[in-house]
Design a protein around this nucleic acid. Structure first.
Lengths: 195, 195
DNA sequence: GGCATGTTTGTGAATATTCACTACCTTCAT
DNA sequence: ATGAAGGTAGTGAATATTCACAAACATGCC
């Protein structure tokens, strides 16, 4: 994906609007105003509003994929690994709250099929990486095998999402990383085999 | 809450539009057309579109509260109780999928403060009832005390929501009740004390 | 019984506003 | 002098809401 600098500025601004004011407020007028130029100037960099959204989501997906891949390189015990990966995610959203939209963007999906695909893609990437870790942990006896890896991933992702959702609802009023680490520990308590 | 018959028809129609076509398609035009009368007739029954949404959400909240309260009357073992309550919820959404909107309505919340309050209210009701059951189960030794009741509720609700979300994304293509019961069993496996 | 009055529930047209998008013009650096 | 990046000033379509008005029905009075 080749993405120009001005385009990156625009999709970042779009993400900020989404986070601060919601989907209904993400208009070409508001976006242009935030960028400091006119509406028509937007169309110098993107051919449509849909393309702006899709580019934003694809950028996020590839960025997330990279970060997750990177964290898979270190060979760690699966439980520590899970901590690291989920912790990184919380960290990322803490620093880039405007990308929360990709997690809670059900409204976005109505707009177009391509946008919907992009969002499902992001969910799939995260699922895929978690699955790998869980599988490894089950193989080496760290995690329980009473549930399948898929089932464990579902429970982890569900809790993870709800945590971010509550943070969002609260207006990002608490430390999502810190409370998130507590959540991870709780999940580990439940899924780790007792020795 | 006194709610007239025609109003109930309208909020049901609104819920169906939301589920089938999404928030962006819930317009006065479409709603009136679905009801078989003109747009202006809507305003005979509600003073605004916002009032339609709020009424719909409050109706759902009180309905859900009643069903949950009722299920609390039977004295059951906490694990069976949890099965019953969550199973009932899956059943309800299977029969009334148009009310899924209240669960995944982040987009709705942008519209108005009152709508947002109504949605949070629904989440709170469910949380409250689950909390009661978990607490009881911890007291009588059914559930683990390694986590607090709040923490367990969070994990249960998160998994629950994600399950419904995936059902929604899939276009309600699988049996949400059946797969949901599998999920409940998985959760119970994790949180029940081993004897 | 007949009639006046008021209510309910609808219609169709009109309103102001917002939306994404575009045709056309300007500026300016290479 | 060309092309990228911007501005001006519009477009048509869609939006929620309001308006004056009417058909159907109920109520109570004579």
């Amino acid at each position: 994906m080749e993405i120009k600098e001005r385009q990156l500025e625009i999709i970042t601004a779009a993400g900020e609007i989404l986070t601060e004011h919601g989907l209904a407020q993400l208009t070409t007028k508001r976006l242009a105003s935030k960028m400091g130029f006119s509406e028509s100037a937007l169309y110098r960099h993107f051919s449509s509003k849909e393309e702006i959204l899709v580019t934003m989501l694809q950028y996020l997906a590839s960025d997330m994929d990279n970060r997750l891949k990177q964290s898979l390189q270190h060979v760690e015990a699966p439980d520590l690994h899970l901590k690291t990966v989920l912790g990184n995610q919380f960290d990322f959203f803490k620093r880039n709250p405007h990308f929360l939209v990709a997690i809670f963007s059900e409204g976005l999906m109505e707009d177009s099929e391509i946008v919907k695909e992009s969002i499902l893609q992001i969910m799939h990437i995260k699922k895929f990486h978690l699955h790998k870790i869980i599988k490894k942990g089950q193989a080496d006896g760290t995690f329980t095998k009473e549930l399948t890896a898929d089932e464990l991933v579902h429970i982890i992702m569900g809790s993870f999402r709800l945590h971010l959702l509550q943070w969002w609802f609260s207006g990002q009023s608490f430390d999502v990383k810190q409370k998130g680490e507590k959540l991870i520990n709780n999940l580990l308590t439940l899924i780790k085999l007792k020795k």
